[in-house]
């Protein structure tokens, strides 16, 4: 497989890899590094890639595993990265001012979720994966995915309401 061909295969889902990595690792730089690492790994075994019928699912799985490993080693090294630069693109300017606050809340709320719920919420509500795909990716059954998703959504709702009330009082 040539370089351009590889890029064409990777192009449709490289942003998804990045967004998943960013959801898990939070920091933009770390997510970029992780995505680059995954793409290089894919490139180094791109002969095998033609054998996989779903390269995207494979790459997502690699990203998930890579990020979880990263997190584990980071916790072991007792290193915590606090990060808060986020981008709100595609929001019209007048709504941006009122909305950006609540949007950054949600980002923070999602950071506080357990990793599994984080991933489920990311894959479902941001990337619109089907339950079966999420179940395959995370090695869960679909019922467990539904439960985790429901919990994650409810947690986000509750915390959002809480923050909203603080704001009013």
């Amino acid at each position: 497989m040539q370089q351009t061909e590889f890029l064409n295969v990777v192009l449709p889902f490289k942003d998804k890899l990045y967004r998943l990595a960013k959801r898990l690792l939070v920091s933009k730089e770390e997510a970029e590094d992780a995505t680059q690492e995954i793409l290089l790994k894919l490139w180094s075994k791109n002969k095998m890639m033609t054998g996989y019928n779903n390269v995207e699912a494979y790459a997502m799985m690699m990203t998930k595993n890579f990020c979880l490993d990263r997190l584990k080693s980071k916790q072991a090294g007792n290193l915590k990265l606090v990060h808060s630069n986020y981008k709100d693109e595609n929001v019209s300017i007048q709504t941006q001012i009122e909305v950006s606050d609540s949007l950054s809340w949600i980002e923070k709320i999602m950071e506080e979720l357990p990793e599994q719920q984080k991933m489920v919420l990311q894959l479902r509500d941001v990337e619109q994966y089907e339950f079966e795909e999420i179940a395959d990716l995370l090695g869960m059954n679909t019922t467990a995915v539904r439960v985790a998703l429901s919990r994650a959504r409810k947690t986000v709702r509750e915390k959002l309401v809480q923050k909203h009330n603080y704001g009013i009082q």
Binding site: L7, R19, L39, L40, V99, L103, E107
Partner: peptide, 21 residues
């Protein structure tokens, strides 16, 4: 509303780094 708006916004994030293949 913010929840759903956030998901739409989050989907717009792009990986812009060049990967040295």
């Amino acid at each position: 509303a913010p929840m759903f708006q956030y998901f739409s916004v989050a989907k717009e994030e792009r990986f812009t780094k060049q990967v040295p293949l």
